[in-house]
Amino acid sequence: MSSAAPETRTVVVEREFAHPPEKLWHALTQPHLIAEWLMANDFVPQVDHRFKLKADWGVVDCQVVTIEPHRTLAYSWEALGLDSVVTWTLTPTATGTHLRMEQTGFAADQTRAYQGARFGWPRFFDGLEQTLVRLD
């Protein structure tokens, strides 16, 4: 009998932005901008850097896993028993950037966290769009 890893779920949000990848990268990696659209933080764009995202409901403990400027950013996301990874992928398009956010690691019994992410990330994308427009 094989001991397969417990099945996990993933939340994916994708959106086209009429802004170049460099501009999205700036909004994804600058602490004062992250605070505008996501949460208060002490982010530093450097592999292995540990940082916290702070919201009214609590704190998310994170650690930078991957950085490829203007292309990929990934960090661990641990909060309220959830041990997940958030990966941002930026792909240039003819009119701007295709942004893909994937959060992996929701256990089958973490329905509340999973639903919260499914509901929350599109709203964070809306905030990101507003931040990008303001940067014009």
Rank of each mutant, 00 (worst) to 15 (best):
L38M: 14
Q63N: 09
E16G: 09
A27F: 05
F51R: 01
P20V: 10
K23Y: 10
F51Q: 00
W37S: 01
T29H: 06
K23A: 14
T29D: 07
P31S: 08
L28K: 03
W57N: 12
E22Y: 09
A55C: 13
H32G: 02
F51V: 02
R50Q: 15
Q63M: 13
K54T: 15
P45G: 07
L38T: 02
E36N: 10
L53G: 10
T29A: 06
W37T: 02
E14G: 08
A40H: 13
V60I: 11
A35V: 00
H32M: 08
E36V: 10
L28W: 12
D61G: 07
L24W: 03
M39D: 07
K52V: 14
H49I: 02
K23G: 10
V60R: 00
I34C: 01
H32E: 15
K54H: 12
W57H: 11
W57Q: 11
P31V: 08
T29N: 06
L38V: 06
A35R: 05
L28G: 04
V60E: 01
D61A: 10
P45N: 10
E14N: 08
V44M: 12
A18S: 14
P21I: 05
G58N: 10
F51T: 00
V47S: 02
Q46T: 14
A27E: 06
H26Q: 15
V13D: 06
L33C: 03
V13M: 06
Q30E: 15
Q63C: 13
A18K: 14
Q63H: 06
K23F: 11
C62N: 04
L24E: 01
V44Q: 15
F43A: 05
P21L: 05
E36W: 04
V47I: 13
L53T: 02
G58V: 08
R15K: 15
E36C: 08
F51E: 04
I34Y: 03
I34R: 00
N41F: 06
I34F: 02
A18I: 06
H26Y: 12
H26M: 13
R15S: 09
K52M: 13
A35S: 06
